[in-house]
Simulated assay, not measured.
Amino acid sequence: MTYKHTIGAVALGLTLLLTGCSGDGSSSAQDFNDADVTFAQDMIPHHQQAVEMTELASTRADSQQVKDLAAEIEGAQDPEIETMTGWLQDWGQDVPQDMGDMDVSMPGMMSSSEMADLADLSGPAFDSSFLSMMIEHHTGAIEMAKTEQTDGENADAIALAEQIETSQAKEVTIMKKLLASQAVAADPLQFADVLQMGDPFVLNVHVPFEGSIDGTEAFVRFDRLAERAEQLPGDRSTTVAVYCKSGRMSRIAASTLAELGYQDVIELDGGMDAWRDAGLPITQNR
């Protein structure tokens, strides 16, 4: 089953759930407690930020898979926002009105600077950042949904929390596979953006040594990565920006890094040759 089919099935189940919550005898007619109110008031802006991220993907993403996934996420979360808004209105509770109501301390929420950095990216660099950020965002939503299932009282709110946990856990699995299945190939300017805007581990895998890019943190030959893993970041979620002279060795290295469990690998397409052709500096310092 493809990821589109998987998410489509989840979306169908969600549609049926939300339809069941919209008529007479819905959530508004049932008991609710403070946990239910907090769940809805927090999840609305949390979803709004996710939708904002997916809207960026429609014009900035390079991968059609990322674009399709973003559209599926938006299609699932917009109706959930409407449903939770209706609950709060029925319960006589305040409804978050705009993006300014977002609390960045909520699990998985991105800061305004992180969102601005994402908006400045495009192409493969955007894909990598989008997937990494959305995985973190979904993980936070799952945590919030679990809290509602434990502390909430309203049956419809608890059912939606269960649905959010199930659907977003599946999407996290899909996004991790997209990150691990292939490195994102970035042209020199995109690669430079990653170095400037992110905090990647910069890795030169070319052998023999023929220069390096400023900021390089390690030199490990492309065919020795597995046996020299101690020179790589211990945190497999760290962004690894890998390059060589022409791109051949870095492509092999990127595949090895994915096999080692690194989820966010960005490869310099064309290597230092393309970097130099773009007018960017190469240093001879190791």
Rank of each mutant, 00 (worst) to 15 (best):
Ser111Asp: 05
Ser111Asn: 09
Ser112Ala: 14
Ser112Tyr: 04
Glu114Arg: 08
Glu114Ala: 11
Glu114Tyr: 05
Glu114Trp: 03
Met115His: 09
Met115Val: 14
Met115Phe: 08
Met115Ile: 14
Asp117Asn: 15
Asp117Ile: 09
Asp117Tyr: 02
Leu118Lys: 08
Ala119Asp: 13
Ala119Thr: 14
Leu121Thr: 00
Leu121Phe: 00
Leu121Gly: 00
Leu121Ile: 01
Ser122Met: 09
Gly123Lys: 03
Gly123Pro: 09
Gly123Cys: 06
Pro124Met: 01
Ala125Cys: 12
Phe126Trp: 01
Phe126Ala: 01
Phe126Tyr: 05
Asp127Met: 04
Ser128His: 09
Ser129Cys: 07
Ser129Asn: 10
Ser129Leu: 09
Ser129Thr: 14
Phe130Val: 05
Phe130Cys: 04
Phe130Trp: 04
Phe130Met: 04
Phe130Gln: 02
Leu131Lys: 08
Leu131Ser: 12
Leu131Cys: 12
Leu131Tyr: 04
Ser132Asp: 06
Met134Phe: 03
Ile135Lys: 01
Ile135Ser: 01
Glu136Thr: 14
Glu136Cys: 09
Glu136Asp: 13
His137Met: 08
Thr139Ile: 07
Thr139Asp: 11
Thr139Ser: 14
Gly140Ala: 03
Gly140Trp: 00
Ala141Leu: 07
Ala141Val: 12
Glu143Asp: 14
Glu143Arg: 14
Glu143Tyr: 15
Glu143Val: 15
Glu143Phe: 13
Met144Asn: 05
Met144His: 03
Ala145Asn: 03
Ala145Glu: 01
Ala145His: 01
Ala145Pro: 05
Lys146Phe: 04
Lys146Asp: 07
Lys146Pro: 06
Lys146Trp: 04
Lys146Asn: 11
Thr147Val: 15
Thr147Trp: 05
Glu148Asn: 09
Glu148Pro: 08
Glu148Arg: 07
Gln149Ser: 11
Gln149Ile: 07
Thr150Lys: 14
Thr150Arg: 13
Thr150Tyr: 06
Thr150Ile: 11
Thr150Glu: 12
Asp151Phe: 05
Asp151Ala: 13
Gly152Leu: 00
Gly152Tyr: 00
Glu153Cys: 09
Glu153Met: 15
Glu153Phe: 06
Glu153His: 13
Asn154Thr: 04
Asn154Lys: 04
Asn154Ser: 02
